[in-house]
Design a protein around this nucleic acid. Structure first.
Length: 279
DNA sequence: GTCCAGGCATGCA
DNA sequence: TGCATGCATGGA
């Protein structure tokens, strides 16, 4: 991997195990959209960013070196050796096939509060609608940083809006969960600043104090927002994979300390099969 | 009209 | 501890 700055763009070349479309379309984030082939735009780290991939070259537009080092390097998880992880994980034919299909996924290090809130919204819901609800939450309570572009609202803003206040986003029964999460985060009852320092099981317990946060939402939050790669969210797709291919041979801990990354490969893989075989 | 969607809270055995 | 059911909403 080589990184240079050119015309206030960051150009990353020889970038292995990094595929933008897999990374943005594996369901870990909800605020990035494809503008054209290989070009994505979205809001993260409090700003709008455009990013493009051409072969193994990735360009971040309008980003200087300092901002890249402070924010985007960790956001795209560029310092993790995915090659080594893939090698370690390639111990059965199923995960091997999943890696073949999804080995370019990077686990994005997103804002913890945003991830928590997003995955509360995700429950018993479909991805297009999850995106819609999040977009309208941002428009309703976020900060407009440029024309029609909004940041994700703070927990404080959400608490102050209340269940009635967020009614326009039409999140249904999840509204009370969103408010409970915002209340606990804003009050400090749950401290997201120090959550990453806890042991995985303790961090998970903390998040599950929130109404509407069960094992799956907690695991997604820990994996996508707090760097806990051992978190293995069991959603319907992954449960399907386990039942279909592993039967009884699957135990907690099967994928080890990078179970979360394996989970994303399997999730993407199983969904892509569905898409390709739909006559 | 019916079913489903990156689940969870609740009640009951 | 484990299992069935309801839940808001919108698209297929």
């Amino acid at each position: 991997m080589k990184i240079i700055t050119e015309n206030n763009n960051i150009i990353i070349s020889s970038c292995s195990n990094f595929d933008l479309s897999q990374t943005f379309e594996c369901g870990q984030c909800f605020r990035f959209e494809k503008i054209e082939d290989g070009l994505y735009s979205g809001v993260a780290n409090g700003r709008l960013i455009k990013i493009k991939q051409d072969g193994d070259t990735v360009t971040l537009y309008d980003v200087n070196e300092q901002e890249f080092d402070e924010k985007w390097r960790s956001f795209f998880d560029l310092d993790r050796d995915y090659g080594a992880i893939i090698k370690e994980l390639s111990f059965d034919s199923i995960i091997k096939a999943a890696i073949k299909a999804a080995g370019g996924i990077r686990i994005l290090k997103q804002d913890g509060w945003e991830v928590l809130c997003s995955f509360i919204i995700s429950q018993n819901n479909n991805i297009p609608r999850i995106k819609k609800i999040i977009a309208s939450l941002c428009m309703l309570l976020g900060e407009e940083i440029s024309d029609g572009v909004y940041t994700f609202p703070s927990a404080e803003r959400v608490v102050k809006a209340g269940v009635e206040g967020i009614a326009p986003i039409r999140s249904g029964f999840r509204a009370k969960y969103i408010i409970d999460a915002a209340q606990k985060v804003f009050s400090g009852e749950i401290n997201l600043e120090t959550l990453a320092e806890l042991e995985y099981s303790l961090a998970k317990k903390e998040l599950m104090k929130i109404k509407g946060v069960g094992e799956k939402v907690a695991d997604c939050t820990l994996l996508f927002g707090f760097g806990f790669c051992e978190a293995f969210p069991r959603d319907v797709w992954v449960k399907r994979v386990i039942e279909k291919y592993y039967e009884d041979g699957f135990t907690p801990g099967y994928f080890g300390k990078n179970a979360g990354i394996a989970q994303q490969y399997l999730f993407y893989y199983e969904r892509s099969i569905g898409k390709n075989t739909k006559a």
